[in-house]
Design a protein around this nucleic acid. Structure first.
Length: 109
DNA sequence: GAGTCATTCGTTG
DNA sequence: CAACGAATGACTC
């Protein structure tokens, strides 16, 4: 079930919001979904799942509502996710136990 | 119309 | 406090 990237109006909006997040900060799927005026939390993740704007759109800057690393480039649980943590750490975000301090790094849209 | 998905919330143990 | 299931919105076939 590996399809090409689905770039639609909704996903475009998600990519734009992701790009809006300043470096060293992170946003949540919920925040993006709310920014779009929808509750499709999964729809947001789905768009990031195959983000055609890859490094341009830092999908790793998007985390779960509790600061947990949702997934990264199709990898939900695995060492590949470590790369996402590595990126966040490189950006200045402190990732602890695969979680981020939303109180400090969460930025609204 | 049915199934899928990187989520979230609410209830129950 | 932890875990499970149900709900939600969007995209593809």
């Amino acid at each position: 079930m590996n399809k090409e990237c689905m770039v639609t109006a909704f996903s475009e909006r998600v990519y734009e919001l992701c790009s809006r997040v300043p470096r060293g900060k992170v946003t949540t799927y919920k925040a993006i979904a709310m920014a779009l005026g929808s509750r499709g939390y999964q729809a947001v993740g789905q768009a990031l799942r195959c983000n055609p704007y890859a490094p341009s759109v830092p999908c790793h800057r998007v985390v779960a509502s509790d600061g947990g690393i949702g997934g990264f480039m199709g990898c939900q649980r695995g060492d590949e996710i470590g790369k996402k943590v590595r990126l966040l750490c490189s950006e200045g975000v402190e990732v602890v136990e695969g979680r981020v301090d939303l109180e400090k790094y969460f930025v609204g849209v």
